[in-house]
Structure formats: C-alpha cells, structure tokens
Nucleic acid binder design. Structure first.
Lengths: 224, 224
DNA sequence: TAAATATTCCCTCTAACGAGTGAAGCCCTG
DNA sequence: CAGGGCTTCACTCGTTAGAGGGAATATTTA
C-alpha cells in the first residue's frame, strides 16, 4: 500500500465547499503516479490522499480512504481497472472514477463507461484537461472528450457480439484452428464455422486473420 | 517546444564532478513527463533541463540543449524513439539515451539497443531503478535489467527475418490474402507462399493467423 | 403466446492455404 | 571463384476455410 497521508478525518469547521477534493491515483507505473500526484497537488482545491498500483490494491485503498475521486488506469497487472471500478461501485455506488488510459480503443471505452466510470481520458491529453475533468466530475457531472465520445459512437455502429461469438473469437486469437476451437468449446466444427460466419459479417472482415487483427486493434480481446 | 530552463551555459567555477547531470525527458504523455521530471529533480545531482513530446521535437531540443542524458519513450506519434535515437547519435555519437518503455517486447528492445540506446527500462519499474540507471549511464556504463536482458536473449533464439519476409509479414498484418500480398509487392503468388513458408518456420507457427498474433505480440510489426 | 435471438448442427462446393520439392538468378564474402 | 544466403518462381497434393444455403432447439422478450 502506498497511501501516504490518510485524511480520513472529517474536515473540522471548514465548510464543505471550501475543502479540497480528495483524489486517489491508480496506475502501475510509479513515475506516472508521481506525475499525476504532482499535477493534482499543484491544483488549488485538490489533494492526492492515496495511491495504488493495481486493481486489487485500488479496491483495498478505496475502502480505507474513501476518496472523492479515483483517477484510474485500465490496464494493470492482475485485476484490471474495469473489475476494480465494478467492485468499488458495488460497495460505493456513488463512487466517482475517472479512467485515464493510454488507448482510445472503443471496447475499452465502452467497458469503462458501462462499469460506471464518470469519464475516460487519455494519457496524452494536456494536464489541464485532466484537472478540469476532476473538477467537473466532482461537481457531479460526467464528461467525455469529443475524441473519446466519437470512438464510442463508432463502436455503437458495430453489431454486438454474442457470448459464444466472443468465445470463438478469443479462441481464434489463441491461434487455434476450427477443429481445435471446436474441441476446446465442446461443440462441432460446423458450429464453429457457423459462429465465424456471423462473426466475420459483424466485424466486416473476410477471414480469420483480419478478424484477429480487428479484434486486437479495437481491444475486443486482449493479448497477454 | 516545452524546454523550460535552458542551462546551456557552462557551469562557472564548479568542478565538473560536482555538477548536476543534465537530463532531457521525452514522452508524449504530459503527466508522465511531469512524473519523470519530479523524479529526476528530486535526486541529488540531477536536473531536468529539457522536455520533448515526440521524436521530432526530441531531435531539435537535444540539439539546442545538449543534455548529458536523454530519457526517452519509444512509442510516440510521428517520429518514434528509435528514429530519434538514430538521428541524435548521428550528430552526437556520444549521446547517452536511456529508453523508458511501456512494453518489454523483444523486437523493441533489440531495435532500441541496436540504434544505440545505453539502456532499456520499463515504466513499471521502481523510480529508484530509473534514477540509478541515469547515474550508471552517465558514468559511461551501459546496463540492462535482468528481465529485459532475458527478453533480448529470447529474441536471439528466434531466427532473423529477411527484408522480404518482413514485407510479406507486414502485408499479412494488413489482412491481405496471398494474392493481394503478391500484387502489392509485385511478385507472384507462389513467391508469397514461399516466403510465408519460411516465415512460419522461423516464427514456429502453423498458419498466417498465428503468425499475425505472434508478430503483434512480439512487436515485430506494429498496428496503427 | 408469438416473435425474435442465440446456439447448435447439417450438407455442398469452391477457393485459398500450406507442405513438399526443386531450381534459377543474384549478390556478397571468404 | 565457389559457396551461401536471398529472392524469385513452378508444380503437385492434401487440407482447411469460408460461402451459401437450411433447420432444429432452447431462451428471452414483447
């Protein structure tokens, strides 16, 4: 656990509107945490009160410190950001989480928003925009940068995959043949072909290789 | 250009051994730059004298400020880290560049070291290790973390691809069929098949889909 | 309950893929 | 200049993938 100062005590005397926004930072890169902490602390009316380096730690630390806002990376070792958001918001439905990701993959954006994130920012955005969003979200609003909203819109154009189609796609990304996918899912090869057929149509691709590339590039499935 | 303080002037009177290591930071994420700057400046004997947010800017700013060490990200919009290193070391063969990357992909590591990087660190490493490496590299030594060296070793196990095989592989990653690859490279389909055959052997895969996944996962070719 | 939707499977047929083998021309290096 | 690697291409052959049709069971939704 990396939480430095525990400002868990209620602010004595100070009116609520004048108290600092208490921010938790979640990122697996120490130097990124350092930068975000410097950024937040340099803003008037914001203080970093806790840090975590992965999803599991984030859940714990949120419980301990109950920050006003969590600034959270998505891709982290072990439990990722989406699971962490889901878990936190299960215990604290009012929890305000801003996702700060490297990637603007539509599936990532969708999953983050679905799981209850109040915003989705990109790490290459100017620090002013990050600070501004913390303020806006703290005031109870949700905001999405235009570029991110556009990506989300693109995703909505694409037909949703069914659960089974996802299974097949994930198996495909492991480099398996139709026969291997079939036996790994305990279905016939013909069924695999059937799923692939609709999969190709939905993704607007012609073959499995294109489907694999498409899936990776849009974050529909993850390598690693 | 984001260079804040231009300490281009020679240190007056102060003996060389006691002067600060002058560091340039190159990363496209503002908050990461902020973190690295905070990290470096907090170390005794190190100062951040310049920043850049992509390869092109890095080349310019290096020329202007001539830092002792450059801390450089690899994947940046436009001109990437590798090209920046090559360009900088063409003008300044003694330039000391430490790559600081998100990924431990063997091809990235190889390309960075090949182009003259003195070290290759990962962003999830503790800040102490980053600071320590800056010191070591400044003293004229090169150092690679064990985990990174191991990856590089893994790469050396894999047979090198020829230029043409790379071409075919890159075309493959675009989702093209053999016929399309053939016409895009102005060769016959049989030649494409021939290259693919050796490609599959070298990558230890059975088909094009596996090859695509393998190539993406090891950073042999890049999406986007 | 009727109407989607998801999942499963079948059949046919053609094109694409990949293994195996061989070989010619080119360039570079010992 | 001989040998080695790279690039090019040809031919055969078996396998796999993918298109184009249906169709039968759930399950969910309106």
């Amino acid at each position: 656990m990396i939480s430095e100062n525990d400002f868990n005590s209620p602010n004595l005397g100070m009116p609520d509107t004048h108290s600092s926004i208490r921010v938790m930072i979640v990122d697996d890169h120490p130097s990124m945490r350092m930068g975000l902490a410097a950024l937040i602390d340099s803003q008037p009316g914001m203080t970093v009160i806790a840090e975590a380096s992965d999803g599991e730690e984030a859940i714990e630390v949120y419980d301990d410190t109950q920050p006003d806002i969590a600034l959270m990376d998505l891709r982290m070792p072990g439990i990722g950001g989406v699971e962490a958001i889901l878990s936190i918001r299960k215990s604290y439905p009012e929890a305000k989480v801003i996702v700060l990701s490297t990637y603007d993959w539509d599936e990532d954006i969708h999953r983050a928003i679905q799981s209850g994130a109040a915003s989705y920012l990109l790490k290459d955005m100017p620090i002013e925009e990050i600070a501004e969003t913390v303020k806006i979200v703290h005031e109870g609003d949700a905001s999405l940068p235009r570029s991110v909203a556009k990506r989300l819109e693109e995703r909505s154009q694409r037909e949703q995959l069914t659960e089974r189609e996802r299974d097949v796609l994930e198996s495909l990304i492991k480099g398996r043949s139709n026969k291997e996918i079939a036996s790994s899912l305990f279905i016939s090869e013909e069924t695999v072909k059937s799923h692939l057929k609709t999969l190709f149509h939905k993704l607007h691709v012609r073959d499995r290789t294109e489907a694999a590339i498409m899936a990776i590039r849009h974050g529909i499935v993850h390598l690693d």
